[in-house]
Write a protein that binds this DNA or RNA. Structure first.
Lengths: 183, 183
DNA sequence: GCAAATTAATGATTTATTCAAG
DNA sequence: CTTGAATAAATCATTAATTTGC
């Protein structure tokens, strides 16, 4: 905590413990009313404002995601370097061509412009070649994605947010010494 | 997972990122040629077939719709949902009591059930009162949730509806370099 | 031991996206 | 197509850890 200067909120250990407990229990984005109540009770342990609670959850959630993503990527990211740059991200570098020219002039394109935007009548664009043709290095297995990971709905999922806000019995397990509440 | 068993495609994080980026940019149903080019590029990051790309878009779009629908329904039907459940297993705290029991009957709750769970339009909890109102050990002020007022709406760009998949045209150099300042 | 210097954490702001209503 | 609400991502800024030289 920061004793004298009231420049920014410095949570007390109790406040942090409570917040982390709520977070662990599934509270990720508290509503306004929830924030109000949390704030009111964290105030028992030190000076605090509603916005502090709000920011705490925002930051904690964001940094959780951040950590997860980093871990995932670090786990299995030894692929080739250029990771797709889209044109409005593209810096003004004439050297770097995000996609090989062959990509830009595949059949179906005329002068680099795709001339068959969603061909009418072919709602199912699977062609025979695709069904068997398999790109990629077959020698090495590069995919180490977790169990049944699916490329969808990883963001903005809506887990039910009905949880008990305030436990009647005090938390903080005694038997389990929680590992240092890093962050 | 699937490295050893080629039962089904397991996208790498890079592949997922690229696909999601394309989707986010508006590509919902890629044409055959588009799928081919996407596949060829994604093959840089791991084994993949055209049908994988096709199915990915199909599934992603469907699940997007599904999610939306569910969200809408949940929003309309379950407006009032019990917030507080008291029956979770709770470890006992030897140190302090995080929340007094009176909390469970704060204003806004009826019989321990929160009857104002984030009503429409109060989720962004930065409110004027909070910005200044400070809970402390000396005062207890409960603010009613009011309309949020914050001048956070900035310019609204009009993104492309139908994007070009890959930078077919080299330039388009919208130098969007927001330089990062020093730290 | 102790501060100045440096680095890592984290609170607070700002900016960009997303979704849905008008 | 535009706009408001909500939020996530990115960034800024300050505090705490820690390193380092004395």
């Amino acid at each position: 905590m920061c004793p004298s200067s009231n420049r920014r909120w410095c949570p007390t250990p109790e406040q942090v413990m409570i917040l982390e407990e709520l977070y662990r229990r599934g509270l990720k984005t508290p509503s306004a009313a929830q924030i109000q109540r949390i704030t009111a009770h964290l105030a028992l342990y030190g000076k605090i404002q509603g916005k502090n609670v709000f920011y705490w959850f925002q930051n904690h959630k964001a940094r959780d995601r951040q950590k997860l993503k980093k871990k995932l990527l670090a786990n299995q990211l030894h692929q080739t370097q250029p990771l797709l740059y889209f044109h409005h991200h593209l810096p003004t570098s004439p050297y770097f061509q995000p996609f090989p020219q062959t990509l830009l002039h595949a059949q179906g394109t005329t002068n680099g412009v795709c001339d068959e935007e969603a061909p009418a009548g072919s709602l199912f664009p699977i062609q025979k070649e695709w069904l068997n043709g398999s790109y990629g290095r077959d020698s090495t297995m590069i995919m180490e994605v977790g169990p049944t990971m699916f490329p969808c709905c990883s963001t903005r999922n809506k887990p039910l947010q009905t949880l008990d806000l305030f436990p009647l019995t005090p938390p903080t397990a005694t038997t389990h010494d929680q590992s240092s509440s890093t962050s």
